[in-house]
Design a protein around this nucleic acid. Structure first.
Lengths: 189, 189, 189, 189
DNA sequence: CATGAATGAGCCTTCATTCAT
DNA sequence: CATGAATGAAGGCTCATTCAT
């Protein structure tokens, strides 16, 4: 019943938001995609903006949950970092549309709603930072600026949605390994 | 002739596009900002989209030019990388509005116009890649995947506009050094 | 059958029409008020407009019935007038919501339906006029224009719903006496 | 230029609001009436509601101004009352559409905007009350409840828009005289 | 060069009503 | 009797762009 349609609508929205962007996607477009009248959509959504918020919220929450799971293990910091990078890139790529909407379109939210996403994003950065801090405590990482370093690593990972193509030579896992190597050993290593 | 006005309009547009986003900025907003009437703007611009294109074009061109200048030196690859990172971050930060518009709003361009920016962006990636390849050739870098590695580094740098605040603890130069250290020596270094 | 439900719905509608106005009240609002779904309402009503018509019809009918009852007595004209004024004001105030809907919202009816109410309203005016004519015949009133005079008196009474507040100093009965005095003796009296 | 169109639009709106009611009048209707596109109207108005507010505001202001002018004379209270009644009815009738919109549609305004009109209306009642109070002080009126009495008189006058027809037998001035007689001398007088 | 009136397409959203289940 | 999904028309409003003056 409703739940199916709701999912269907969210999927249609993600697809269109990714393809055309949030602003260039009309409610009509979404309705057409699911085979409903424009007005009928409003049985399932509060507003177009709310649809975007839900999509972005679910996406960033999943990133956060996955990251928390990594932190909850008793792996070493380098192991956690490798895992985190792999998780992030794998998730990004296998939910490319959602990730793109999260990273590219969330800014289109109104201030209040955008802040919700921003807060969760800040949390995500914080989790990455914790790995670096653990590594620093354990003497395995030399990090003077864990926060900024985390932002560098996360930035690299978040940029993947901008250039990854399925047709590329490397699999997500391979890309993750290249990234991990870079972060762990550097170019000179 | 009124090259001044044209510049003034572009500056107003950059400011507004950065603050509110391209779609949320109306031509009226821009006109208000420069003290003209909406209609009068069209003596100076072809269209709102064209304005965005020009802004993005100028921005990416400047990044490219700067990068080319680095490549044209006879510094070693590590030295070039350090320079490139510093240039990129310094430029990003000192032209924050423009950089934000380039990186966040260019997608709002129509396909044809977006491709213009995309091509220049691809070129930019290529230039970064060349540094890595030089380092590889010279035996100073261990890079198996120069293109992907370049994308990692560039991604990290391009993400800066998302979190940099003037009120932060580190100056752009210091941030650049943290980044360079990470890329050259890695966390374990 | 569900005459209860029908009454309940009418009461909900009156309340909402009075509070928000007919147009600003949605069928959903009414459904919410009675704890049904929008669609279920239509087992009890023909249309939103019909609901309004019924409310207004019942209201004006009650005014008319009450007035007829006064006319059917063998009171003198002045006595009848006093009684009519008191009845009208008392009824207005004790059914404030209904009266408000009748007097303020009936115009929202379509032409045909509005005419139904208008005819009953004209009848009501006619009944008031009869009192004045009786008084004129009996030599107790000096009225040259019974119809217009009736409209003056009725206007004064119909306006009460606009300003009466329960928190006011005068009771409906007291207000009615002030009104009657004015109509019978005038300011100079 | 603008001023003409603005007036023209206001006139069209008044006409349509009176004929069909505020809610039943669409912006399209108004645009059609003045021969403009729907969107073009917004060069001249802020919103449909604002249009209504302006109309109502101008109407009640004119009533107030006229009343104030009467109060500023040094006529006796009865003379002032006669003048006030005549002014009110004459104005009502000669600006029937505007008066109708003021008295029938102002409730459609949002709370804030409605309050603006309500405040001015309260002021109007106050001015009528002052006449009665003057008459009371001067010993020409016997009024125990000047406020309620004023509301009775004003109610009678405000009701005129509901029944007056140009085709009727009495001119506005004659109607005013019937009303004044009633208020001054009463039916028994 | 500047204006501002006008366009016309499009946008998001609401809503009374119907109907299969 | 009750639901709630679906409709489809309409509504108010915004906006990039054009053009006569």
């Amino acid at each position: 019943m409703a739940a199916n349609r709701q999912k269907e609508i969210a999927l249609a929205a993600v697809k269109l938001f990714e393809q055309k962007g949030y602003h260039a996607t009309s409610v009509q477009d979404i309705a057409d995609e699911v085979g409903l009248q424009k007005g009928s959509l409003y049985h399932y959504i509060h507003s177009k903006e709310d649809l975007l918020l839900q999509i972005a919220h679910e996406a960033i929450t999943q990133f956060n949950d996955n990251m928390q799971a990594v932190l909850d293990t008793d792996l070493t910091a380098p192991e956690k970092l490798v895992k985190a990078v792999e998780n992030h890139i794998t998730m990004s790529v296998s939910n490319m549309e959602t990730t793109t909407v999260l990273l590219r379109e969330a800014f289109s939210l109104g201030d209040t709603q955008h802040q919700v996403i921003q807060d969760l994003t800040d949390k995500y950065v914080e989790l990455w930072t914790q790995i670096l801090e653990q590594g620093s405590r354990d003497g395995q990482f030399h990090v003077e600026q864990p926060k900024v370093t985390a932002l560098a690593i996360l930035g690299a990972c978040n940029w993947v949605y901008r250039w990854y193509r399925e047709s590329g030579q490397l699999s997500p896992t391979e890309i993750a390994r290249v990234f991990s190597n870079l972060f762990l050993s550097g170019l000179s290593g």
